[in-house]
């Protein structure tokens, strides 16, 4: 196929390389030239060497032009964690490490971490008393605490990452958003709004705040009791007279002539006309 052939074939066609689509608006009978022209275009795209695919040459498709209907919006890419950002910056690539490691001391394979691992203190009878230990400090408890601290630290980081990537759509309490600038120029939360959100928070428990202990000067915030609908008595001696009077009143109100809407003059004394006249003078 020569290049002129392609140009001829492309007449009356619309291409969407992103979606690998071609629309032949001219005849639509023979589809082979359309497909051929699309392939031709795809092979013209710039080729890149992709390291993650073992150095294969790939083509990055451009953004699709045709709008394809979709029930739900495209999910947003989750925000990368602090470590992922750091690793990318340093060029650190994830490597699969074996779970089992060779242990020289016991001459056997042991798990890298966790139960029965090399680091486990279970089978260690004696630990060296290092210089950083205080007098009377147990080296075993110190090591245990160090592990515990590390777990805690990691958990905190995990929570921080999660908080960062949490959806921003969830609305916080109203007052906590409406921060005003105080006289000193610093942001502050008005007292009334703070009280309002405190009230909301009070009720935001499983028992709607019923069984929660009050803190300090916290005021009670009882659930408002719904008012019962009240109807007139079905029949009592004075009732029917009152009822008739009320019914007559309602009937009269229905038949009152409706007041006609008062039409205000469109141009007041100082309207456009008056202004124009003033300009002339």
């Amino acid at each position: 196929m020569t290049s002129t052939d392609v140009v001829d074939a492309e007449f009356g066609m619309e291409f969407d390389e992103g979606n690998m689509c071609v629309f032949d608006t001219s005849t639509g009978e023979d589809l082979a030239p359309a497909a051929q022209a699309l392939v031709h275009r795809l092979f013209k795209l710039e080729r890149v060497v992709d390291g993650s695919l073992g150095g294969m040459r790939v083509v990055k498709l451009p953004e699709g032009v045709t709008a394809i209907p979709r029930e739900k919006p495209v999910p947003k890419a989750s925000e990368s964690t602090k470590w992922e950002v750091f690793a990318k910056e340093k060029g650190i690539q994830k490597k699969k490490r074996d779970r089992m490691v060779w242990d020289e001391e016991s001459q056997s394979f042991k798990p890298r971490y966790g139960y029965k691992s090399r680091k486990s203190l279970k089978d260690v009878p004696v630990l060296e008393h290092t210089s950083d230990l205080a007098d009377g400090e147990n080296p075993f408890t110190k090591k245990k605490r160090a592990v515990k601290d590390l777990v805690e630290k990691n958990e905190k980081k995990r929570q921080a990452n999660e908080k960062k990537s949490r959806r921003k759509g969830a609305a916080p309490l109203p007052s906590l958003v409406e921060v005003e600038k105080g006289p000193s120029g610093k942001g502050r939360i008005p007292q009334k709004q703070l009280a309002k959100s405190a009230k909301i928070a009070q009720r935001s428990t499983a028992s709607v705040g019923r069984f929660d202990k009050r803190v300090g000067s916290e005021a009670d915030n009882p659930q408002p009791v719904a008012q019962r609908r009240k109807f007139d008595p079905v029949s009592n001696d004075g009732g029917i007279k009152v009822e008739r009077k009320r019914a007559l009143k309602i009937a009269e109100r229905i038949f009152l002539p409706k007041p006609e809407p008062v039409q205000e003059p469109k141009e007041g004394p100082l309207g456009k006309k008056a202004k124009k006249q003033r300009k002339k003078h």
Partner: peptide, 25 residues
């Protein structure tokens, strides 16, 4: 069984008045 509330009375009278006008009274 209960008497009509004010809103209900108005609804009934308005509908009836389409047929019988001020004769609702």
């Amino acid at each position: 069984m209960r008497p009509l509330t004010e809103d209900e009375t108005r609804a009934v009278f308005e509908k009836l008045s389409k047929f019988i006008g001020t004769n609702v009274k």
